[in-house]
Design a protein around this nucleic acid. Structure first.
Ligand SMILES: [Zn+2]
Ligand SMILES: [Zn+2]
Ligand SMILES: [Zn+2]
Ligand SMILES: [Zn+2]
Lengths: 125, 125
DNA sequence: AATTTTAATGCAACTAAGTTGCAAATATAT
DNA sequence: ATATATTTGCAACTTAGTTGCATTAAAATT
């Protein structure tokens, strides 16, 4: 149901996402903010920011949850859909500003798709 | 390190995959076989069958692990790579016999990719 | 500014999926 | 038939994420 109040915790979380352009895993965020915020709070704020179209979530390697800033989404329209890249060496995750076309599927209706590409990032090449 | 012995448990597992052409989640397999096999055994045999190129695994909705039969893979070459489809209504998961081309990525090397398409299956349309 | 209302937070306890160590059982080799 | 080595079951553990509830802190009302 999105964010209603401008709390300290919210400010701390948003600041963390402003520090870098990479995606952040929920786990890492919890670890980074462990002296300031409870993990339940972290999960709850992530949820709300996603509801509001400020962040989007996706699953990385091993099915763990990552979050990144949305580009032009709103509470009603999550339109910023794209593949993600995870470096197999350093673990860093980024949004890719490309589109992967999904073909028509016979006998099925595709509603959404998620693409995770794994490989080596520029630093680790 | 693959399968070395032809055990009862192995036969039971293989029989389960022969019953249908759909993918099976590890959890579901454990539930289905709970009166015959311990869950540790299920996980271990799945691991070995994947090593041997008889099954492949991938992550479905919510990051849970699914397994399906491979087509023409071997212990050394897992070449049967394809997207997967999960029905949002009934939860059924299938391998899609299509290829999704991944474009060249500037400043990155792609080593693998996983694509999960969610939507409605024929039954649920 | 003080009070009331309502949402956000922290904590502890829980859940679910998967993993590990080890002793007992079973398959294969001798 | 016996020895050896792999596989299995069990219990205990781990990790990521969730839930209920009392407390705290925003914001709205007076
Ligand atoms: Zn890297
Ligand atoms: Zn993204
Ligand atoms: Zn269906
Ligand atoms: Zn498949």
């Amino acid at each position: 149901m999105g964010i209603l109040r401008k709390t300290q915790s919210l400010a701390v979380m948003l600041a963390e996402f402003d520090k870098s352009s990479h995606a952040i895993s929920a786990i890492d965020l919890i670890r980074r903010l462990s002296n300031k915020l409870n993990k339940t709070t972290v999960y709850r704020i992530l949820d709300k920011l996603e509801d509001d179209g400020l962040l989007h979530s996706f699953l990385g390697k091993n099915g763990i949850k990552w979050y990144a800033k949305c580009n032009g989404c709103s509470k009603t329209a999550h339109t910023d859909v794209h593949p993600h890249f995870q470096c197999v060496d350093c673990g860093q995750v980024d949004c890719l500003a490309i589109q992967i076309p999904i073909p028509e599927l016979p006998n099925r209706t595709a509603l959404m798709s998620s693409v995770l590409i794994q490989g080596k990032c520029q630093n680790c090449l």
